[in-house]
Computed example of a mutant assay.
Amino acid sequence: MAKVYIGVGHGGSDPGAVKYLVEKDIDLQMAKGCRDYLKEHGVEVLISRNGDIDSSINEKTTMCNYWGADLALDIHNNAGGGEGFEVWHSVNGGKGKVLAQNIEKEVVKIGQKSRGLKTKKNAYGSDYFGFIRQTKCPAIICEGVFVDNKADAAKADTEEKCRAFGEAYARGILATLGMTEQNATEETKAPEQAAVQPEQTKADTYRVKVTASALNIRKDAGTANAITGVIRDKGVYTIVAEKTVSGQKWGKLKSGAGWICLEYTQKV
């Protein structure tokens, strides 16, 4: 089973970049979206933090190397008044550059502009960034949006939007590993997904109010399934069945349009 390490930028006493968004918070939301998507496709994942705690570069790279990851990415967001996504990879190119290229393609697909692939050398001619320099496996650093650009920050101002970035990163990782949504069969998917997918649980019909400003409707429960629409009105919808995938509860819409993640709703 492939192993991917996800570093989460900043945390605890270090908020990262701050203006329209707090970087450490959206870093974590994007990382969780990436983690969940990879797990649903049979990839073993280790994440540097699951909550708001301090996390140094040395701690992250030591953890990654000890665990023996095949690929690694550190998730950040930008500042400085610019716009768009950028990704840093090793000056030596290789598989890290391929990973960066694959992720960039997926990020562009979700509507974010790209500032391109980048490298940076230190005074000794090796990689400037410790996360890339100190990891034994190919490693990259993703910068999703500029938190001090109002329009760019709006692309990551909800948990659902952050998860979209994380899922785009995950699709790029899968491509680099030679895996796709099509060839992630029941045999290669994570055990928890294979266990819950075959049957849905009937629920007493109830109504929920959507709390997210943009909530994806999917063909079936789970982020591995195709998006069939988006709810943007924060309206009230009727749920007729439930499924749990990778610890997330999903509800089937009475209209037949598809399934929504119930974490972004409240019962009414």
Rank of each mutant, 00 (worst) to 15 (best):
A2I: 11
A2K: 15
K3P: 15
G7W: 03
G7E: 12
G11H: 01
S13R: 14
A17P: 08
A17D: 06
A17I: 03
A17N: 08
K19W: 11
V22D: 13
E23Y: 12
K24I: 13
I26V: 15
D27H: 11
D27R: 10
L28W: 12
M30W: 10
A31Q: 07
A31P: 08
C34N: 12
Y37A: 15
Y37W: 12
E40M: 15
H41V: 08
V43R: 11
V43Y: 08
E44C: 12
S48N: 12
T62Y: 03
N65G: 05
W67K: 06
G68H: 01
D70A: 07
L73I: 04
D74Q: 07
D74I: 02
G81P: 03
G82R: 03
F85D: 04
E86G: 02
V87P: 02
V87D: 04
V87R: 01
V87I: 15
W88N: 05
S90Y: 00
V91H: 06
G96R: 03
V98K: 09
V98C: 03
A100N: 06
A100H: 04
A100L: 05
N102T: 05
V108F: 02
V108Q: 09
V108R: 08
K109I: 13
I110C: 04
Q112H: 13
L117I: 15
T119V: 14
K120C: 13
A123N: 14
A123W: 06
Y124V: 01
D127C: 12
P138E: 03
A139V: 00
I140F: 05
I140N: 13
G144K: 09
V145S: 04
V147F: 02
V147M: 02
N149L: 01
A151T: 10
E160M: 11
C162N: 15
A164H: 09
G166T: 00
A170Y: 02
I173T: 09
T176E: 14
L177W: 07
G178C: 10
M179P: 07
T180L: 07
E181L: 11
N183M: 06
E187K: 14
E187M: 14
K189Y: 00
K189I: 07
E192R: 10
A194S: 11
V196H: 07
Q197R: 13
P198Q: 04
Q200D: 05
K202V: 13
A203C: 07
D204E: 12
T205L: 00
Y206G: 05
R207M: 13
V208Y: 01
V210T: 01
T211R: 08
S213N: 13
R218V: 03
K219M: 14
G222V: 08
T228R: 09
G229N: 10
R232N: 09
D233Q: 09
G235M: 06
V240Y: 06
K243V: 09
T244I: 12
G247K: 00
K249E: 15
K252Y: 11
L253W: 12
K254D: 14
K254S: 12
K254V: 02
G256C: 08
W259A: 14
W259S: 15
I260V: 11
E263N: 08
Q266G: 05
